[in-house]
Each structure stands twice: as structure tokens, then as C-alpha cells.
């Protein structure tokens, strides 16, 4: 992919050694960009380049290395959309969505499972007090997730600068994955432990 770089392109702000020479500007001016070739005196001015930090919208923007949306971003989007469409059509052509007998309140299955994304929760219900897991956990999960952004406000983004959060979130995700897996593939009739090769009690 050829990427045209804009003339005054500069490196990112995380590498201070290569920090951009921010052009000095006079009042009412702006960094000059070349106008249409061969037409002197038609330089355009970049608009909206400077936003005061006290303003409503906080922007941590410096001159970046950029490319045009058309074609670079649109091409990527189009490619992805096509790939996913193909994947979806092919999958749907070959794999049948499950459908069992008609619902019957009087005929309890030997193991009743919630949809897969709730199976972690269901698995935890069998470990802890139902009120705690069933009632407190779901709201805490979403509120806790939202709170993350308001608690961890350190400016560091690289993994080496935020090992603790990194590992904490990893544990959370791996833990969630683990209980979901156990609930999905290792639980059979009576919510008893069943190895996947002894029988799968899982529908999508």
C-alpha cells in the first residue's frame, strides 16, 4: 500500500526525541499548505488546527502523520465488510442454526443452560450465594467496567508502563473465559462435571 504522507508530517507524541517542530504562527495565520500546483498565491490554510486546552472539547492532538480517508480507510472498510459477508454467507450455507421441538413448559430438559455469554454467570451461581452472584454481579460488572475509565486516568498507554492494570484486566478476562468455558462444555445433567468427550451439552 502506498501511503502519501502530508508534507509537514511528523512523528507521534510518544517519542519526544522526534517531537515535531510545531510551526510558529502569527495571529490569524496557520501553517501553510501548498495550493494547487503552479498557481502561486493560492496556499490554503489548515483549519481548526489549534484548540485551546481549556475549551469544552479536550483534544490531545498534535500534527500527526495522516493519510486520506478516501481511499485508504474506505478501502480497508470495504475489504473487511466483504470478507465478513463472505464468511457469514458461507457459514450460514453450511451450518444449520439449531431448532429443537416446540417449547413445552412441562418437559424440563436434563440440563437447562442460559445463552453462552451468560454461562459464566450461571457457573458462578453454583459456587456462590445466589443473591450475590445473580443480583449484585451483573450491575456491578457494567458499572465497574464504566468506572475503569474514570479511575485509571494515568496518561500511560504502553503495556510496560501499566503492568498492574494490564495484569488485572487479563485476570478478569481469563477468569471470565474460564467460567464460561466450564459452564459451556464441562457441565451436564444436574450441572455435574462432564468431560466434553463424554457428551456435549451446549447449543448456540
Amino acid at each position: 500500500m502506498t501511503i502519501e504522507k502530508r508534507p509537514n508530517a511528523t512523528a507521534d507524541k510518544t517519542a519526544p526525541s522526534q517531537a515535531p517542530q510545531v510551526p510558529t504562527i502569527e495571529r490569524g495565520g496557520g501553517p501553510k499548505l501548498p495550493g494547487p500546483p503552479g498557481v502561486p498565491g493560492t496556499e490554503r490554510f489548515r483549519l481548526l488546527a489549534y484548540v485551546k486546552q481549556e475549551s469544552m472539547v479536550r483534544v490531545d492532538k498534535r500534527p500527526d502523520e495522516t493519510v486520506l480517508t478516501w481511499p485508504h480507510l474506505l478501502r480497508a472498510e470495504f475489504l473487511m465488510a466483504s470478507l465478513i459477508t463472505m464468511l457469514l454467507v458461507i457459514t450460514s450455507f453450511f451450518i444449520q442454526a439449531p431448532l429443537e421441538e416446540m417449547a413445552n413448559a412441562g418437559n424440563t430438559p436434563h440440563v437447562a443452560k442460559a445463552p453462552w455469554y451468560f454461562l459464566g454467570l450461571q457457573e458462578m451461581l453454583s459456587y456462590f450465594n445466589a443473591t450475590v452472584v445473580g443480583v449484585l454481579f451483573p450491575p456491578l460488572y457494567f458499572i465497574g467496567l464504566m468506572a475503569i475509565a474514570y479511575i485509571d486516568r494515568s496518561p500511560y498507554k504502553a503495556a510496560r508502563d501499566r503492568k498492574l492494570v494490564w495484569i488485572f484486566f487479563l485476570c478478569l478476562m481469563v477468569g471470565g473465559l474460564l467460567v464460561t468455558f466450564i459452564g459451556s462444555f464441562f457441565r451436564g445433567p444436574g450441572w455435574n462435571w462432564v468431560w466434553p468427550w463424554e457428551g456435549l451439552f451446549f447449543t448456540l
Binding site: 439449531p98 416446540m102 417449547a103 413448559a105 430438559p109 443452560k113 442460559a114 451468560f118 447449543t203
Partner: peptide, 12 residues
């Protein structure tokens, strides 16, 4: 409205 649906929602 099949068995999967009914019991998954009941349980959920």
C-alpha cells in the same frame, strides 16, 4: 419458541 429458547430464557 423452541425448547432451547424457552429454557434458556427461563433460566436466564
Amino acid at each position: 419458541w423452541d425448547q432451547i429458547a424457552f429454557w434458556a430464557i427461563t433460566v436466564g
